[in-house]
Design a binder for these strands. Structure first.
Length: 294
DNA sequence: AATCATATCAACCGCTCGATG
DNA sequence: ACATCGAGCGGTTGATATGAT
């Protein structure tokens, strides 16, 4: 579409409605109310006929999008919360760019919003790390730094009686979210919150992160990212303890654990869709986070 | 105060998929 | 089995807001 047409809110073609100009661009209040009124009577679906019958010079697609992303009741707007961020990271790690699927797990959030969040916040970080968002380096940083940080911060928030008076003390959280641990069938390999802060980090890793990871809104307002140690116990069965790996690939060792070795052994691929890491992103964790968002 | 750069987000586009005839 | 059509999805774009210089 040419910029002029968009600017004036009309398309030059009439593909869907015979001879009628199709309006584009931002929705007006009148259009919103027309659409909302129509849907309140006839319900969702049949978007093309909805557009026609409601007297909107819009495509069905446009109406559907407007309804789902804006007009629909219970649409949640505003900042993505920490818990939502955590859930997004987890679910994206599991499902990749399946935005609508991810959105289904975040009540009130739209796929568009989550997609925008990912692109603006997360991909920005990948860019600053000078790596691809699907690269191993970035996945590792996300899994071993940001997600633990988020969990820590959420735990801290949960401690605050002002914040969440009812549920989820940190211990409860930590007992539910076995983020960085290996096969936790027994449930014993869970994060100990005592491990969370004050982590000794290998110089290469910490230098790298301090230098490269810039503050990431809620996620990254940390100067010394905690990482590493809480994997050490549970990841021993990663077997490859600090081997001198192929130096061309990105890896690090900390507390005797070679993350790359672990990665190779354990991880699915971010954005890889079906290659799931069930031990890491298990249903229980996701369910729990969802409950927190309700 | 003006200008430029960057971030954010609403909306569009093209493609795919599933239902239906 | 094939064609058509509507719905939905993910990627992308452009307008606007915000911050930095």
């Amino acid at each position: 579409m040419d910029a002029q047409a968009r600017k004036h809110g009309y398309a030059g073609t009439q593909s869907e409605d015979q001879g009628m100009s199709i309006r584009k661009g931002p929705w007006t209040i009148e259009e919103d109310s027309l659409l909302a009124h129509y849907i309140s009577i006839h319900g969702e679906g049949h978007w093309n006929s909805a557009a026609r019958c409601a007297g909107l010079k819009r495509t069905g697609k446009s109406c559907r999008l407007r309804w789902l992303n804006y007009l629909r009741p219970n649409v949640r707007r505003g900042n993505i919360t920490l818990k939502e961020q955590l859930l997004i990271l987890q679910l994206h790690s599991r499902w990749g760019n399946r935005w609508s699927k991810i959105a289904q797990m975040l009540p009130g959030r739209t796929d568009n919003e989550i997609k925008n969040y990912w692109r603006t916040r997360v991909q920005k970080q990948a860019k600053q790390l000078k790596c691809d968002v699907n690269s191993k380096q970035f996945r590792d940083t996300m899994r071993y730094v940001w997600i633990p940080q988020l969990i820590e911060k959420i735990g801290a928030e949960s401690e605050s009686p002002m914040d969440q008076p009812t549920i989820s003390p940190p211990t409860y959280y930590s007992s539910q979210i076995d983020i960085p641990v290996t096969a936790s069938e027994s449930g014993s390999d869970l994060i100990d919150p005592d491990f969370m802060p004050d982590i000794s980090v290998s110089s290469t890793f910490s230098d790298s992160l301090d230098a490269q990871v810039s503050p990431w809104s809620d996620l990254t307002d940390y100067q010394n990212p905690p990482c590493g140690q809480y994997y050490s116990d549970s990841m021993q069965n990663g077997s490859s303890l600090c081997p001198e790996n192929d130096s061309s690939s990105w890896s690090w060792c900390q507390d005797g654990v070679d993350m790359q070795g672990v990665e190779q052994e354990r991880y699915g691929f971010i954005g890889g869709g079906d290659s799931l890491d069930q031990s890491l992103w298990n249903e229980e964790n996701i369910w729990f986070l969802q409950q927190q968002l309700m």
